[in-house]
């Protein structure tokens, strides 16, 4: 996965606005794909504090820094039978998203 990462580095009154240039293909900041796990992982996406965790059959993410914008969650998963690994489209919320599937392998938090 080559989701673009955008890093917020706002330094109060001294913040300088960057000139934005044309972007390459992939949109939206995201955490990148990570293994679904019970372990609570904290990170920063789009300059916002997010955390994610999961169970065998679900993945969860939430944003806890009161950033504006939305938080999205996408998963890769398997069914109980069959050889394909699937990906879902993104489920969106304001601060929390929980997505379920038979066997959740990976998740990707968007902001």
């Amino acid at each position: 996965m080559h989701f673009r990462r955008r890093i917020a580095l706002v330094t109060g009154a001294t913040a300088i606005l960057a000139s934005l240039v044309a972007a390459p293909v992939f949109a939206a900041d995201s955490s990148g794909w990570h293994t679904n796990s019970l372990a609570l992982t904290t990170s920063s996406v789009d300059g916002c504090k997010v955390q994610w965790w999961g169970y065998v059959d679900s993945a969860h993410t939430n944003e806890y820094s009161y950033c504006s914008g939305n938080i999205g969650l996408q998963i890769r998963y398997k069914l109980y039978s069959g050889s394909l690994t699937y990906t879902s489209n993104v489920d969106w919320g304001y601060s929390y998203v929980d997505v379920g599937a038979p066997i959740v392998l990976q998740s990707n938090t968007h902001h």
Binding site: R6, I7, P24, D29, S68, N70
Partner: peptide
């Protein structure tokens, strides 16, 4: 939250 959107720099930037 739904009334504001962040603007942030692109990866190209």
């Amino acid at each position: 939250r739904d009334r504001r959107y962040r603007r942030s720099a692109t990866a190209a930037t």
